[in-house]
Amino acid sequence: MRSDARALLQKLNQQGFQYQQFPDPYADLELWPVFEALLHDERVVGQQLSRVQQREHEFQAVKEQAAARPKPVQTPDEHPLEEQFSALLATYAPGQDPPVVNPDTDEAEQTGHKVDLRTFLKELGGARK
């Protein structure tokens, strides 16, 4: 018995009484329009996302996390990539200035992409001519 019910019984000098708990099953819960309005109000529960929107948000978050990570170091500091390329290309074109790879102007370097093999071979072929 609830403590407040026991206290009331003592106050009334009674041994017992008919007690009703009023347990409303959720099935009985009416969707009053005021409830519905609150459910759809972003100031109460925030933005409600559909499953697809939720997945898009998760995907976007993963992408942003990946972008925020520091770029992997591709070459040791003592041998920067441009020096390695220049040295390599110089061996195929003696007497010519080797093409210099500048990370400030190189689009691939700026975007964080690795220099791909096709670009490298194209430059290599041009230097041999």
Binding site: W32, V34, A37, L38, D41, E42, R43, V44, V45, G46
Partner: peptide, 19 residues
């Protein structure tokens, strides 16, 4: 009651209460 429930939309400005 409805008036008090509706006031939840004004509790935290534009910030959702749930957050």
């Amino acid at each position: 009651d409805p008036a008090a429930l509706a006031s939840l939309t004004r509790l935290a400005g534009d910030t959702p209460i749930s957050s």
